[in-house]
Design a protein around this nucleic acid. Sequence first.
DNA 1: TCCATTAATTCCACTTTTTGCAATAATCAA
DNA 2: TTGATTATTGCAAAAAGTGGAATTAATGGA
Lengths: 304, 304
Amino acid sequence: MDRLLQMEVFAAINDSGSFVQAANRLRMSPPAVTRAMNALEERLGVQLLTRSTRQLALTDAGARFLDASRQLLFDIDTAEKQAVGETGVAQGHLTVSASMTFSQMIAAPVVRAFLASHPRISVSLVAVDRVTNLVEEGIDVAIRIGDLPDSSLMAKRLGMVRRLFVASPDYLDRRGIPSEPSDLKLHSIIGFTGIMPSHDWHYKTKAKRGHVHLHPRLDVNDAATALAAASAGEGITMALSYMVADQIRSGTLVPVLEEYTPHAVPIHLVYAQSKLVAPKVRAFLDFSADRLRTKIEGTDMESL
Amino acid sequence: MDRLLQMEVFAAINDSGSFVQAANRLRMSPPAVTRAMNALEERLGVQLLTRSTRQLALTDAGARFLDASRQLLFDIDTAEKQAVGETGVAQGHLTVSASMTFSQMIAAPVVRAFLASHPRISVSLVAVDRVTNLVEEGIDVAIRIGDLPDSSLMAKRLGMVRRLFVASPDYLDRRGIPSEPSDLKLHSIIGFTGIMPSHDWHYKTKAKRGHVHLHPRLDVNDAATALAAASAGEGITMALSYMVADQIRSGTLVPVLEEYTPHAVPIHLVYAQSKLVAPKVRAFLDFSADRLRTKIEGTDMESL
DNA sequence: TCCATTAATTCCACTTTTTGCAATAATCAA
DNA sequence: TTGATTATTGCAAAAAGTGGAATTAATGGA
């Protein structure tokens, strides 16, 4: 039984507050966590954690060992990175997180290309629509949309993202191009709950602000479906700029009411620390940054 | 593969200078050492050691990682001891070293009693006739005969040891009691090469000094055999005091020429460090010190 | 140059450990 | 008491680790 893993399990239990969550965090089964913890206590000959099914409490010895464990795990990680330095082979397992849609539409192809060119690296692409905690959830790189809070994380800017109304050229030929928000009431709207959960659209420009209540004829919660419908000329839908960058470039979709959707937020590649980046992480950052930028650019603020 | 063991193997290889010796030190097989080293390099993605059958050399990364490993292994050991503190159960494996004869005659019975009263501890009793290096050879407790050099080791004094001539009472009745060294020439000598490799005995008292050349009729390299012969009345032999303590107490053997064999040296239980002694070591020290003292005392200098 | 020697490595059959699922036990809130 | 949740154990399958023997490689001496 790996003694370092025992310490990692012990730390994870205390971080997450339960055996099951520690198991998830470490991608182990709950029995494995139980056994690791038992083995650690057995080996040290002292109880570290008094536990019932509903309550966990550190013993004195446990509290002492927990502090030491955290420090040691950090030291070991540092030592390994320092020793390896720049010379190391990019290998091992990499965990990348992004929002569900971004992951599907943008990140996945880049990750697949990355896997193809780095045979010794495996990747977990975690698609979750919430802000992830890199260290706690063991994520190496996250793609974050929105302004970044100050933090100890490093970030590479990939571009800007904003919400856009889009429709196909033939639809606009048939139904006309809306020139102000209220015109939308005369149009066929394809609702996308992922971006616009309510059907009220609040807009704000330099000149004016207001809102329209939209009545979608079709309402879906999947970006690809909404965009397919829009491309087929079924109506106007709202999308995030990166989702439609390609179609706008190729002319399959056309943005409308652009002056009413100016608010753009940055999108970043985010990763922990600045020094001692593991080769696998460095490799992913180097590989993906340009590719992601290319995929994202073209429909952001500057294109207005 | 235990990552800590990998670091231990790496350190041991560098300490001992070869895979085979590292294997011996860690009580592993050479294949296991090779595999641990390969796994470590594989995991880090960098070569630590360039090796041929005759030459080992650290790479730059290896040198960095070696320093860090040694420090970390020490830190982990410390952390575990600190966390466990006094509360820990005495358990695990204990390695005790002593000279061949002391081990057989004195230490082994005490170790057996210790095992019986500490079911969770196992013991390696290493009987070697050389000074062992506690840390390098992974020995927890050593029994040392002779003056101790200043060192970082802790010691418990068990008593004094000196060389003695002994014979059985009936032999002395028959052949007379020697009163000075030259009388030995008229006696039947049982040589014991363990204590007296040459047959020249150099003696020195306050009054005089000199030497006699002895002609043993029987010469053995095993203490038990020599003492058995002496007990059977076959002659005079030289023994270390602890070997004959019991027989002298019981009268089976009688020391002779005591004024010519005054030089006594101390005997100690030696162990590493003063703080953070592992419970298993503490238990052995507590258990064995008195018992060993009892077995040793009675024929040392003070009994003259 | 070749050979004997020594040390690391690989091969292989075997043993031990580890694994996760499913069932169970324990706890607490309602 | 019940229901929900969580830790633990039993068990069979899978994986990893094991050391002895054979192999390979390097080196110093003949």
